[in-house]
Design a protein around this nucleic acid. Structure first.
Lengths: 230, 230
DNA sequence: GCAAAAGTGTTCCTTTTACACCCATGC
DNA sequence: GCATGGGTGTAAAAGGAACACTTTTGC
């Protein structure tokens, strides 16, 4: 009985948020077989001496040029046959970024790389649609027991940006449901927001105050795990 | 640049519950190097044509003789150096069983196999202490947003068994905290318990009614995810 | 009769929900 | 002046927490 020939890869589901465009996911167009020319999650084989996390960051850099500072392990997919050529077990990660901060470009290892709105993704290679679905589900779940926002919003943001973020992720179909006042009350009670004296207008309507996260409290709360039902 | 030489293994953290002994974990004594003679989590290399889940079940059978019907993926550990000889990425699973149902024995692939009380585990091989810690944390967390019990209790059980289960897992140090009446009220409200006409005495004290889970509702609730704060 | 476990309701408090009007600005 | 988004409070309802005595059995 010879040693099993199994390869290990990593894949990344990077979510980008933008107040105008909502929630997107970063995809690449494959440059090599299998599935050459099709869209897929960025990712690739892990090298023998690098950690899984290092591998994800490296692959993201090589394929899309972006650097993500928040990545979390999602799930490991290993069904035989998920890669048509070899047995490949892939460790999937998901991450969150402010979409506006990143110029995405097809770096050396991909034919193309771009953001797709979460409700308008193309057919994906391998079992990547399954991975994407798992990540989306996890993101939604996470929202209700951990503060999310720091990674997705600009340093200073209007309260309505935060509100729309939650609204978007919870309620992708767009029927308004979350009560603005109750949401604000609840969120402010967490004590992780700092209201700035500056006000900013969006072009029309009354200008709103800017807020920023109190990083210490934010991460403390995140560590401890909070419960936040919308 | 040659292909990376990485192996893939699975490890299982199997928790057993017994109303008398509380929460235990199943460990094996390693029969082969490295760490020969030391205690470790059951597990081993994945074969090229089997799924990860199949591999866990197979290894459990080969090393401890038990069959677990509830196993869930926990996390994948892949730091280089976690196995002293080769690069091994391990996918950890955790599961729950009724301890009383299983005769554990050292099957062919282990020198010994037994249950250890969760607060009295030996030093473990590899990074298995870290894996065990992660599993314990996850189990506690899970308890508060999913019904747990079906997998850990006999088919028919007294309400106090369920109560002690939660008490044990939440509150390992044993200072009583959960209010019996409130716990019962809340749990019954979930609508997943069926009260049987039979009563049973524990030898002393007033006999209590037996309950069983309404499987359909139980698993439905589990799918949807419930929120249950104790 | 006493030790051990099971059964049972009410009150208070906290949290959550529902809900509508005025304000500041750009055009 | 009107359209657009920002800001704000209260009342009713639901859910959670605290709490103690009685019942049934074995010995």
């Amino acid at each position: 009985m010879g040693l099993p020939n199994i390869r290990v890869s990593v894949d990344a589901v990077v979510f980008g948020y933008d107040s105008k465009e909502g929630l997107s996911v970063l995809l690449i167009k494959r440059k090599v077989a299998p599935f050459k020319g099709e869209w897929a999650l960025p990712g690739g084989l892990v090298k023998e001496d690098e950690s899984l996390e290092t591998a994800v960051h490296r692959e993201l850099e090589e394929e899309t040029g972006i650097t993500v500072n928040y990545l979390e392990q999602l799930y490991t997919f290993g069904t035989p046959g998920r890669d048509p050529r070899n047995r490949v077990v892939t460790v999937a990660y998901y991450g969150l970024v402010r979409q506006s901060e990143f110029d995405v470009y097809a770096a050396t290892d991909a034919a193309d790389a771009k953001w797709f709105h979460i409700d308008d993704t193309p057919k994906l290679a391998f079992d990547h649609e399954q991975i994407l679905a798992a990540a989306t589900k996890r993101l939604r779940g996470k929202l209700s027991y951990e503060p999310i926002g720091f990674e997705l919003l600009d340093e200073k943001f209007r309260f309505s940006d935060l509100y729309h973020l939650y609204q978007t992720i919870y309620n992708p179909t767009g029927e308004k449901k979350i009560d603005r006042r109750n949401f604000k009350k609840k969120f402010l009670q967490l004590g992780i927001l700092e209201e700035l004296p500056e006000k900013v207008s969006e072009g029309r309507g009354r200008p709103g105050a800017l807020f920023k996260f109190d990083k210490e409290k934010y991460f403390a709360l995140k560590e401890r795990g909070m419960l936040f039902q919308v």
